[in-house]
Amino acid sequence: MSEAAVVVDDVSKKFRLYKEKNDSLKTALMRGRRSVHEDFWALRDVSFEVPEGSTFGLVGRNGSGKSTLLKCLAKILYPNSGSITSKGKVASLLEVGSGFHPELSGRENVYLNGSILGMSRKDVARKFDEIVEFSGVRKFIDQPVKNYSSGMYVRLGFSVAINVDPDVLVVDEILAVGDAAFQAKCKEKFAEFRRAGKTVILVTHSMGNIRDMCDHAAWLDNGTLRQVGDAQSVMSAYTADIGKGDR
């Protein structure tokens, strides 16, 4: 196995679930009420390595902690214990088009969104044509994005994000957006990534996607790691477990 692009080492993440949430100063001051909460472990002692250049699938039932783990990878959330180390630049496609300003044109938003995702102005300028081409909204690029359809919005956001050119790309259920043609383009882009020796970590609910695209996979169950290894064997174990239909 080649070197690891990402090392997830004994990561645990806890959320507070509020029974009674007090987020008002008035009740805090006047009635002395405090919040009552319970700890909920969304991830517990998860460890695995993602080999460099692999396409790594993350599977598990709803609520098993996949998105939480991806957010920890993307530095949006911070684990309560354990650590995540990644080699090179990490970019995440969790939700595209966040940070678009409705009054600004598509062009201005490409620059704005690029810089939110960590690209320099020069990077964006260099890739601008490619971004616009990929999104397929060239005709509307100087229109304010508030006039875009939601499909166009997503496609433009996706095109910016995918052109960030990271070493590790983290993708959460993004393949569900867009029409079939756009999805095909995205898959092609991921394949290009892999050929360039980059690492992709993705969550998807389509078994088909995992089979065609991933070489490695990990299976999360209620916040703990059930199995990690080559995609084939993890997927067959996971499918068998779902087949048992115990939930």
Binding site: L104, E108, Y111, L112, S115, G118
Partner: peptide, 20 residues
């Protein structure tokens, strides 16, 4: 290092507010 983001967010507000 991310000062360009500061500039872009600032201009988003400046341009967005009085646009049109």
């Amino acid at each position: 290092a991310s000062r360009e983001l500061f500039y872009n967010l600032t201009m988003r507000d400046v341009k967005g507010k009085y646009r049109r």
